[in-house]
Computed example of a mutant assay.
Amino acid sequence: MLPLDRIADGGFAETEVTIDGDAESLLLYRDGDHVRAWLNICPHAGRRLDWAPGQFLKSKDGLLVCAAHGASFELQRGECVAGPCRGEALRAVPVSIREGQVFLGD
């Protein structure tokens, strides 16, 4: 799907994947040797989280910030901790790392 070294440690990447037959934009977040993935959709209004394709905002506090309406998400579970969808969460997508590549699924 994507080489791990294309994601900066502590940074984000976006990739297109097929899930259940539908093309989806996937947000990837790298934390050392771990990668978390969510659908690139804000639960508040269903818009993409990036401000430009593959460009995501991260607050000084280390939160992912939705470019559309400012919802802020923690990066462990993707929970919204501030903004219009507080208490909701991003939809997690399982990924795994094998031989330096990030793959969809476990």
Rank of each mutant, 00 (worst) to 15 (best):
M1N: 15
L2T: 08
P3G: 07
P3R: 11
P3Q: 01
D5E: 13
R6P: 04
R6T: 15
I7H: 05
A8W: 08
A8Q: 15
G10V: 06
F12T: 03
E14C: 13
T15A: 12
T18K: 14
D20G: 05
G21Y: 03
A23L: 13
L26M: 13
L27P: 06
L27S: 11
Y29T: 01
D33N: 11
V35K: 09
V35R: 10
W38M: 04
C42K: 05
C42W: 07
W51K: 12
Q55F: 07
F56V: 05
F56T: 06
L57N: 01
K58S: 00
S59A: 08
S59H: 07
K60Y: 01
L63D: 00
L64D: 05
L64F: 10
A68W: 11
A68R: 04
H69I: 12
G70C: 12
G70W: 12
S72Q: 15
S72Y: 01
R77V: 08
A82D: 12
C85F: 01
R86Y: 10
G87R: 04
L90I: 09
R91S: 13
A92V: 00
V93L: 12
V93W: 09
V95R: 03
S96A: 12
S96R: 15
I97H: 11
Q101Y: 00
L104R: 13
